[in-house]
Deep mutational scan, measured.
Amino acid sequence: MTEYKLVVVGAGGVGKSALTIQLIQNHFVDEYDPTIEDSYRKQVVIDGETCLLDILDTAGQEEYSAMRDQYMRTGEGFLCVFAINNTKSFEDIHHYREQIKRVKDSEDVPMVLVGNKCDLPSRTVDTKQAQDLARSYGIPFIETSAKTRQGVDDAFYTLVREIRKHKEKMSKDGKKKKKKSKTKCVIM
């Protein structure tokens, strides 16, 4: 069974824990209790493949930012979460993405942009803004509501699919490099 290491990042209060708990335990946590770091595991079937999701729910508070490099190193894919009623959390996505790329030393890291709290009427981040940002990053965008469960499975499952595509691409690139290195030079 394939294991996928997913990391949920975003500013404090955007609903990272609520999304994760909704996926794992099928219930909505409405009281806000700032996370330092929590880890969850769940076995699911995605596109006919049974897999184990190892999900790291991270601290959004700035005082825990020193811990970010460590979990970013171990993560295979990242859910970059903002709240649709919090423009600052949307603007912060850029910083999370840049930090992930720096730590992973790669421009090509599996990510999904997630606009959470889409059940709320007080939207300050337009869907088109988020779609445009995701398009500019070359990553999928999904709106979710941890409260109603809308888009929750889709967000995590899409990230797994992005990781699969990335692994497939990397193995193809690896095979191309191996083929090239088999060419021999004969000096007579």
Rank of each mutant, 00 (worst) to 15 (best):
I163S: 03
P34A: 07
V160I: 07
Q99S: 04
T124V: 08
K128G: 04
R164A: 15
G115H: 08
Q22D: 15
E31V: 10
S17G: 01
L120A: 09
E3Q: 12
T50P: 12
G48Y: 08
D54C: 02
N26Y: 07
T158F: 12
K16S: 13
C185L: 07
M72L: 01
A59P: 00
L79P: 02
T58G: 01
D126S: 09
S181R: 13
R149V: 08
K147W: 03
V125Y: 11
V14K: 13
G12H: 11
M188S: 12
V45K: 12
R41C: 10
V81W: 02
D119Y: 13
G48V: 06
Q131P: 11
E62Q: 05
F28G: 01
D132G: 06
L113Y: 11
S145E: 15
D105K: 14
K177T: 11
A155P: 07
T124D: 12
V9W: 00
V160W: 08
I93W: 15
V152Q: 13
A11F: 14
L113P: 01
S145M: 09
L79H: 01
K42T: 10
D132A: 05
Q25R: 04
G115A: 13
G115V: 12
E37N: 01
I46K: 08
D119M: 13
S106P: 04
D154L: 06
H94V: 05
K167Y: 06
S181M: 08
I36W: 00
Y4A: 09
L79F: 03
A59K: 00
F78P: 01
M111P: 04
G151D: 05
C185A: 15
N26H: 10
G77V: 13
K42Q: 14
A11N: 05
G138D: 05
G15V: 01
E62M: 03
A83G: 13
T148G: 12
M72T: 02
A134W: 12
V186L: 07
V160L: 11
E91M: 13
D105G: 13
S122C: 09
M67Y: 00
P110I: 03
C51H: 12
T58N: 00
K117R: 12
Y71M: 00
L53H: 04
V29C: 09
D54S: 04
I142D: 08
T74L: 07
L133V: 07
D30H: 15
E107K: 14
Q25M: 08
V125S: 11
S181D: 14
M111R: 01
E49N: 13
I55H: 04
F82K: 02
V81Q: 07
I93V: 08
K117Q: 14
Q61R: 03
V29E: 12
E63D: 07
D108L: 07
S106C: 10
T183R: 11
E76G: 03
R68G: 02
V109M: 04
G10S: 15
S122F: 09
V7C: 11
K88V: 14
T58S: 05
T158N: 05
D153E: 08
Y4P: 15
D92L: 06
F78C: 01
G115W: 11
G151V: 13
D173G: 08
A59C: 03
L19P: 00
K16G: 04
S89T: 12
Y4E: 14
V7W: 11
V112S: 01
L133E: 07
F82G: 15
Q150H: 02
V112F: 06
E63Q: 07
T2Y: 11
A146Y: 01
G13W: 12
Y71S: 01
I36G: 01
L113G: 03
C185K: 15
T20F: 00
T58R: 00
T50M: 13
P140G: 03
D108M: 11
D92S: 15
K101L: 12
V103I: 12
M111K: 02
T124E: 11
Q129N: 10
D38C: 02
S39K: 03
K167L: 09
L159P: 02
V44R: 10
V152H: 11
M170E: 15
I55D: 00
A11P: 05
G12D: 12
I142C: 08
F90G: 10
L6C: 10
Q129E: 10
K169T: 14
I36C: 09
L52M: 12
F28D: 01
Q70F: 02
G115S: 08
G15E: 02
V44Q: 14
Y157V: 14
V186H: 15
L19R: 01
K5D: 08
D108F: 08
T35M: 00
S145I: 13
R73M: 13
D54E: 08
R135H: 08
S17E: 01
E62C: 03
G151Y: 15
E31C: 11
D173H: 06
F90Q: 15
Q129T: 11
Q131A: 07
G77L: 09
D108E: 08
K172H: 12
V152A: 10
I46R: 13
M67G: 04
K128H: 05
Q129D: 15
V109P: 04
V109W: 07
R41S: 11
V109N: 03
C118F: 10
S181Q: 13
D108P: 04
E31S: 06
L120W: 10
R97G: 10
A11R: 09
K178H: 13
C118H: 13
F78I: 01
C51T: 10
S65H: 09
P121I: 08
R135E: 09
I36T: 02
E63C: 05
D47C: 10
L6D: 02
K177N: 05
K180A: 14
A11Q: 07
V103A: 05
K167I: 06
C51E: 13
V7P: 09
V29R: 04
F141V: 13
Q61H: 09
F28K: 01
Q61Y: 02
L6H: 02
T2H: 13
D126I: 06
S65N: 03
A130F: 13
R73F: 07
K179M: 14
D54Y: 03
D33W: 03
D154W: 06
E49H: 13
K169L: 06
H95Q: 12
E76F: 06
D153N: 07
C51D: 13
R161V: 13
I142P: 02
V114F: 10
Y96P: 02
R123P: 09
Q129V: 07
V125H: 13
I100L: 14
L56T: 10
L6V: 12
Q99F: 03
A130I: 12
K104E: 02
G48I: 05
V44P: 12
Y4S: 12
F156D: 02
L56H: 00
I21W: 04
C185F: 05
K165W: 10
S17R: 00
T127K: 05
T183L: 05
G75K: 01
T144V: 12
L113V: 09
P110E: 01
D38K: 00
P34F: 06
F90K: 12
I142T: 08
F28L: 03
K175P: 06
T50I: 14
D105W: 04
D69W: 04
C80G: 05
I187H: 11
T35H: 00
R68D: 01
Y137E: 10
D47H: 11
T2M: 15
G60W: 00
C118D: 14
G151R: 13
A146S: 06
L23V: 07
K128A: 04
S89H: 03
D92V: 08
Q131F: 11
D105F: 14
V29A: 08
D153Q: 08
D105A: 08
K169I: 07
G138T: 13
G75T: 03
G10T: 01
Q61P: 03
I187S: 13
D119G: 05
K104V: 06
L133C: 06
R161L: 10
P121N: 13
A18T: 05
D153W: 05
Q61D: 14
L133T: 11
E37F: 00
A134V: 10
L120K: 13
T58I: 00
V125R: 08
T35I: 01
V103K: 03
K169H: 06
G13Y: 07
K177I: 06
K169M: 07
A59F: 00
L23F: 11
M170A: 14
A134F: 06
K169N: 09
S65Q: 07
R164K: 10
F28E: 01
V29L: 12
L19E: 15
S39L: 13
L133Y: 15
Q61T: 07
V45R: 11
R135W: 09
Q25F: 02
D38N: 02
D30T: 14
A11K: 09
V29D: 11
D154P: 07
D105H: 07
